[in-house]
Computed example of a mutant assay.
Amino acid sequence: MGGKMVSQLESELESPKKSTIIYPESDGKPMADNTKQFRWITVIHGNLSWLFANDEMVFVAGDLLWYPVEGSPKITQAPDVMVIFGVPKGDRGSYKQWEENNIAPQVVFEILSPSNTQKEMSKKLLFYNRYGVEEYYIYDPDKNELSGLLRSEENLEVIESMDNWESPRLGIRFDMSGEELQLYHSNGQIFQSFEQIKEQLQQKDEQLQQKDEQLQQKDEQLQILAAKLQEMGINPDELT
């Protein structure tokens, strides 16, 4: 083995290898602590996904780790739901902002559960404020309490009243007049759960079946009438 090759190998052994930075795709925490929290997360995520289904440059994610700073895997949050305008739809293991034209999520939702602490929520607020979120909504389904923050210049500022508030980015409306939060699409249609949508589809299917049965009955009646006319020597086609 030549001296040059030996010295090269010694140099490689002596110099530490550059460590590959790992960005975990899970924080080890469950998506939700209870069925109520999970229902709200899925309702908001599902309806926002449908709302922007035809816009290829709006990405809606649920419980996805967001890394705003390259090289800093400890700086991360996983919003219950986040909406990012200006990036394409598609599967991701995490949202690495520097790989997405450095576009931060513009809208974030957090659904509270009894396990959420004030300290935890304060850290989330600081994170979202620091890294560019424009609209931040927090809903406590147990207490039916909704709060929102909107970016004004450099910081997120509290929205004074959330009742009938309309999101500047999403165009959806928040209604707090009832026993629980109601969300409405810009066309006035209420946000619905998968179960409610399934029930409506089943009702429409039953209505279509009833119409088919009614048409079949009318067709049978017409066939009977045509047969009787033919027995009487009358051609039904000549009557039309």
Results as ranks from 00 to 15, higher is better:
195 E>I: 04
14 E>Q: 10
60 V>Y: 15
70 E>G: 09
122 S>R: 10
113 S>M: 01
124 K>S: 02
171 G>S: 06
89 K>G: 11
89 K>Y: 07
82 M>E: 14
205 D>E: 08
200 Q>H: 09
69 V>D: 08
68 P>R: 09
27 D>L: 01
233 G>Y: 07
212 D>Y: 06
131 Y>W: 11
136 Y>N: 03
186 S>Q: 09
176 M>Q: 10
63 D>N: 01
87 V>G: 11
231 E>Y: 14
179 E>Q: 13
43 V>Q: 13
20 T>K: 15
173 R>W: 05
13 L>H: 07
175 D>G: 14
137 Y>S: 04
144 N>L: 05
196 Q>P: 08
7 S>E: 13
104 A>D: 09
121 M>W: 07
44 I>S: 03
31 M>Y: 02
7 S>T: 07
232 M>A: 14
109 F>W: 09
131 Y>E: 05
43 V>Y: 07
98 W>F: 12
16 P>A: 14
89 K>W: 05
193 S>V: 02
175 D>P: 11
124 K>I: 00
181 L>G: 04
209 Q>N: 08
46 G>M: 03
114 P>K: 03
153 E>K: 14
178 G>D: 13
85 F>D: 05
16 P>E: 15
182 Q>G: 11
37 Q>T: 00
134 E>I: 06
175 D>M: 07
100 E>Q: 15
240 T>A: 06
213 E>M: 02
204 K>Q: 15
36 K>W: 11
158 V>M: 11
218 K>P: 07
216 Q>H: 12
192 Q>K: 15
114 P>I: 00
191 F>R: 02
20 T>H: 12
6 V>E: 12
20 T>W: 12
229 L>R: 02
103 I>R: 14
141 P>I: 00
25 E>P: 09
181 L>T: 01
126 L>I: 09
235 N>Q: 03
114 P>G: 06
38 F>Y: 08
157 E>R: 01
198 K>A: 15
76 T>W: 05
24 P>C: 00
202 Q>P: 04
138 I>Y: 11
154 E>N: 12
240 T>D: 06
6 V>P: 09
201 L>I: 02
137 Y>G: 04
208 L>M: 06
210 Q>F: 03
131 Y>K: 06
238 E>N: 02
24 P>N: 00
3 G>T: 08
240 T>M: 07
117 T>C: 07
43 V>S: 11
152 S>Q: 13
211 K>C: 06
216 Q>R: 10
90 G>K: 08
77 Q>M: 08
201 L>H: 10
47 N>P: 03
181 L>A: 03
51 L>P: 06
212 D>K: 13
177 S>R: 14
235 N>W: 03
167 S>F: 01
143 K>L: 11
209 Q>C: 04
201 L>M: 11
40 W>Q: 01
118 Q>D: 13
175 D>I: 03
70 E>W: 06
24 P>K: 00
19 S>E: 15
13 L>I: 02
